[in-house]
Design a protein around this nucleic acid. Structure first.
Lengths: 202, 202
DNA sequence: CAAAGAGTGTTGCTTATGCAACAATGGAGA
DNA sequence: TCTCCATTGTTGCATAAGCAACACTCTTTG
């Protein structure tokens, strides 16, 4: 459930990965993802090129890892990775995703479509996993429009799409307001009627 | 002449030394030199204890190296390590030494006498080397009170002593003024009569 | 005095990283 | 088309770093 714990790993490995990730993050801001070559990363990180390939198959794998890592950190900040389902937590998730998408889109220079697509895939996977985990924790009596798997799929796509839309409209309305506005939509995906007495704590 | 150039060294070695030196500097500020044990340094640096001993015989050698390194950096900042003798350069050297002594004494918490003594030895060695190098570059016609070797010895001790004194009087008078004040003393050590027409550019 | 603990250096072995060279791919330009 | 060049992954070998264990010295504490 938590692929980024501080495993008791060889300190050399931990250091090298940190240096690679740091160099990668910096370079993406500076020259974007597409024009970035592996040699840039290893030079900035101060490691050998062969060492890079000992850790990542290529720069795409590194990007995937980096996105997962950073998004997971955002979840950790709000403890969304160690909680149960509630409308309040779902609302926080909306906020996290919107902010993350906004930050990603702003830092990639030339509206790099490939970059954005790769971000989307990784983030959606994580959202899907989190919501799926939440739903597993619900009592079996709760009804869903379909299976729980379908529910988390629909909700994760919907949530990401809403985040992109919020970014596209130049972050209007304000995030808190937007979260309140779209929360019923997502709740509906999950089979929750917000007008009736919700079976969950808000 | 320059023991700290960016030699083409194995990047692993460069990294490890940097981490050790960084951890050492931080820890000295936090808990002083005497109470510091090697294990503290290696833990903070994130390296193995055996690796430490592969680079330094003990914490005293590390301190020596650290002082030499930092003092040399100060010389480099003002390009005193790549210039010839002049009264202006000697004056700059006074300023560098005063500032360095002051910084060292302020950062060592409990007026750690051993620490101060170790700093003194290393800094004086460097001053001695630099002045000696300067004197070698002078034309053979210039007169000294004694040999050039004696002159640089006397001057280096005198200069360090003056720096300690300036620190002891709570940095009074202001550094620039103090430098002008003591410059004739040091010049006399080097056989230069500042009242007569100096054979050197000011 | 004895025993326990903390810190020091050292050692043998394992593992990760550095380095240089290589073939393979693909794009740019004559 | 052809060559040139940059980039990519990969490989074998050299070297640095990690790790656990050891003996040794001091200090502390009962």
């Amino acid at each position: 459930m938590s692929p980024f714990e501080d495993e008791k790993l060889d300190p050399r490995v931990k250091r090298t990965r940190q240096m690679i990730e740091q160099a990668f993050d910096d370079l993406i801001k500076e020259k974007g993802f597409q024009t970035l070559i592996v040699q840039d990363i290893t030079e900035r990180a101060g490691i050998n090129r062969a060492t890079f390939y000992a850790h990542f198959p290529d720069k795409y794998a590194l990007l995937d890892h980096s996105i997962r890592h950073r998004f997971h950190q955002e979840l950790e900040k709000r403890m969304l990775n160690v909680c149960q389902f509630s409308l309040g937590n779902l609302r926080n998730l909306v906020i996290v995703v919107c902010e993350f998408v906004d930050k990603s889109h702003s830092q990639c220079a030339h509206s790099d479509l490939q970059f954005q697509a790769l971000v989307e895939v990784q983030v959606r996977i994580q959202i899907h996993g989190l919501i799926g985990h939440w739903l597993e924790g619900l009592p079996s009596g709760v009804d869903f429009p379909a299976t729980r798997a379908s529910a988390s799929t629909a909700a994760s796509w919907a949530l990401y799409g809403l985040a992109v839309e919020w970014n596209r409209t130049r972050r209007m309305p304000p995030l808190e307001e937007y979260a309140d506005q779209v929360l019923p939509l997502l709740a509906a995906n999950l089979g929750l009627n917000m007008e009736a007495a919700a079976p969950l704590p808000a």
